[in-house]
Amino acid sequence: MLADALRRLPGGNPDEASFNAHALLAAVRADLVEHLVGERGQDPDRPRAAPAAHVRRMLGD
């Protein structure tokens, strides 16, 4: 389970593991990406960049 893996990361916040798992999984759902890019006209790189930025914030520099 992703939340369990996130809890074990050094420097991560175990109390936020469940939320972070949901945020990361939601960001890569095909229907969500299609909605953001296809229907709302967002830049296709944005759905990739947002989860990457979230992971960097979770893990630190």
Rank of each mutant, 00 (worst) to 15 (best):
L25D: 07
A30V: 14
R29M: 09
R40E: 14
A21T: 10
P10S: 07
L9P: 00
V55P: 00
L36W: 05
A17D: 02
V33I: 14
P51L: 02
A52S: 03
A23T: 12
E39L: 08
E34I: 03
A17L: 01
V37D: 01
H54M: 08
P47T: 04
E34K: 05
R7C: 05
V55S: 03
P10A: 12
R8K: 14
D31N: 06
V28I: 08
H35L: 05
P10T: 10
D31W: 01
H22W: 11
A23E: 07
R29G: 06
P51E: 05
A30Q: 13
V37L: 01
V28S: 11
N13P: 05
P10F: 02
F19M: 07
R57V: 11
R29E: 11
L9G: 03
Q42L: 14
D15K: 03
S18Y: 02
L32M: 09
R46M: 12
P10Q: 13
A50T: 05
N20R: 08
Q42T: 12
D31K: 01
P10I: 04
R57P: 02
A52Q: 01
G11R: 01
P47A: 02
A52N: 00
E39Y: 09
L9I: 05
A50I: 07
P47Y: 10
G11N: 04
R8S: 14
H54W: 01
A26T: 15
A23C: 11
R7P: 02
E39M: 05
N20I: 13
D45Y: 15
N20G: 10
A5D: 09
F19T: 05
V33Y: 03
V55A: 11
A50D: 05
R7T: 03
R57N: 06
A49S: 03
D45Q: 15
A52P: 00
A27N: 13
